[in-house]
């Protein structure tokens, strides 16, 4: 576990200031009353309720405190389906995956599966052992959804269940999906999975209202995939895979700001791609992915199968 300020850089912590910045650079998605940023900005001091609760101190004394202060902080109100489908105005999310740092630890996968209730057989993130040809060097290649700018999956969806947002994210509305699986056939990156069975979920998750930003709760008979965690971004935090990787393989950021970060390093996106010869997967298909790769040169780790997964 790394110290916290490194995962979420200081200054991002007070949400209100993040919001100020966001509003300033014309980010906050059309200041409606449902807007989470403004709602969070209104966060007021807690009003004492008059009722008291007894609390034990570390020295064994009993302290009586006002009940109002025990309430957990107000959750960010959920945003509407329409707002989710629009995405965050003025943003163009982008990911850079540094292949030279990946050693197949699968922390990204674990964190992703944990956060989205993904079953082990249906990982949204896969770390492929790749070798282009017999005599070329093997390397680990983590894949997420590519969030293509010309998404073949979105093109073929008959009911707008999967959609492209203005911030570049390709989302899925599991309440709309009819389960025809055309998008799965259309995706050349095999990134989509289908809930063949009733998802195994804790009861409190099952009751949650579906959000395409968290892709939770997953629903039987519908398609799921990596969603780029816009819910985390709205909170000013990084997607789960990015913050979980101990080697800083994943960089995430906004192309409009030309900056990506893996939590501990913050770099110019254009510099990174230029200096390290970044590329995208299957460029010839014309899908225009939003996920960039840095080639596995000067690798930090030798290619070894450390997670003991059988190679496919």
């Amino acid at each position: 576990m790394r110290p916290l300020p490194k995962i979420i850089p200081l200054g991002q912590i007070p949400r209100r200031n993040f919001i100020k910045g966001a509003l300033l650079s014309g980010i906050a998605s059309g200041c409606s009353s449902k807007d989470p940023f403004t709602a969070a900005a209104k966060e007021e001091a807690v009003q004492p309720s008059g009722e008291t609760v007894k609390l034990l101190s570390t020295t064994g004394e009993i302290i009586e405190v006002d009940k109002a202060y025990l309430k957990p902080l107000e959750e960010i109100p959920s945003i509407t389906n329409v707002a989710e489908r629009m995405g965050i105005d003025g943003k163009k999310f982008v990911m850079v995956i540094d292949l030279s740092r990946c050693r197949n630890l699968k922390r990204c996968q674990e964190a992703c599966n944990h956060a989205h209730f993904v079953s082990d057989a249906q990982n949204w993130i896969k770390i492929y052992p790749m070798q282009e040809a017999e005599h070329t060097a093997p390397y680990w290649q983590p894949t997420t959804c590519m969030h293509c700018d010309d998404p073949p999956c979105v093109k073929v969806c008959p009911v707008d269940a999967t959609f492209k947002r203005q911030d570049g994210i390709v989302g899925i509305d599991a309440d709309r999906c009819i389960g025809c699986r055309f998008c799965m056939a259309a995706c050349p990156y095999s990134t989509r999975v289908f809930n063949w069975d009733k998802p195994m979920l804790p009861p409190e998750v099952m009751e949650m209202q579906y959000s395409s930003e968290t892709s939770c709760p997953p629903k039987i008979g519908t398609v799921s995939k990596c969603d780029f965690c816009p819910d985390m971004v709205r909170k000013g935090e990084l997607p789960h895979c990015v913050s979980a990787c101990p080697n800083g393989v994943f960089f995430f950021g906004d192309l409009n700001e030309d900056v990506v970060t893996n939590g501990s390093e913050t770099v110019r996106f254009s510099d990174l791609i230029r200096d390290r010869s970044g590329y995208r997967l299957m460029e010839d298909l014309g899908t225009k992915p939003r996920v960039y790769y840095l080639p596995p040169v000067d690798r930090l780790f030798p290619f070894e199968n450390e997670s003991k997964t059988p190679e496919g």
Partner: peptide, 11 residues
């Protein structure tokens, strides 16, 4: 000394 970006601060 930094420039604030969405998710982090750039030197």
């Amino acid at each position: 000394l930094f420039v604030r970006r969405l998710l982090s601060d750039l030197s």
